[in-house]
């Protein structure tokens, strides 16, 4: 098994965090994993991205030329990365901020993650709604393991943050199951 994921959005959308929680959960499940963030000036404004590779064997290149899955949270990121997914690969798209016109040979799953996050009470959890959808489709990481990671990473004593992230994850999964 090898799963290569590219996650992209604008700075502030929690793209790096999304990559890290996936990598952390995959590690806890006993997989080999690499997480490669874009670094330096690229992080400020514009598009921000990271690459996560999960495997049951040692990972060679952490750089992903063609991904099995793209998680895209805004339109500039879609423009930049839409060519970087395999044929019949998965594209999880934030339709609040991006349009999927002119993309073919890719399985597209799109929901208005940003709008959903606003309804849940915090625009910042759009990334976790998207994560819920990804987990539901790919089933590589179990939800309960992801929630353990949330607990591990959440700032101590802030139950509210944990709660809204879990709600976002559940909502994303619900949407993907249709």
């Amino acid at each position: 098994m090898i799963e290569r994921i590219i996650i992209a959005g604008s700075g502030g959308q929690g793209v790096m965090l999304l990559g890290k929680v996936i990598a952390e959960a995959a590690m806890r499940q006993g997989n080999y994993v690499t997480y490669l963030p874009a670094y330096g000036p690229e992080v400020r404004g514009g598009t921000s991205h990271c690459m996560v590779t999960i495997s049951d064997q040692e990972v060679g290149s952490p750089y992903i030329a063609k991904a099995d899955a793209l998680i895209i949270l805004n339109n500039p990121s879609l423009e930049r990365f839409k060519g970087k997914v395999k044929n019949n690969g998965l594209l999880i798209l934030n339709s609040s901020l991006a349009k999927s016109d002119n993309i073919s040979k890719v399985k597209i799953l799109q929901f208005p993650f940003t709008d959903i996050a606003i309804k849940l009470g915090n625009v910042k959890v759009a990334n976790m709604v998207a994560l819920g959808s990804y987990l539901a489709v790919k089933k590589i990481i179990q939800t309960k393991n992801m929630i353990e990671v949330f607990k591990f990473m959440a700032p101590a004593g802030n139950a509210r943050i944990l709660e809204i992230n879990e709600m976002a994850l559940a909502e994303g999964e619900r949407l993907a199951h249709g």
């Binding site: 990598a23 590690m27 080999y32 994993v33 690499t34 997480y35 490669l36 963030p37 990972v59």
Partner: peptide
């Protein structure tokens, strides 16, 4: 890449 990449 080595500096920035995260791994277990």
């Amino acid at each position: 890449i080595l500096g920035q990449m995260m791994e277990p």
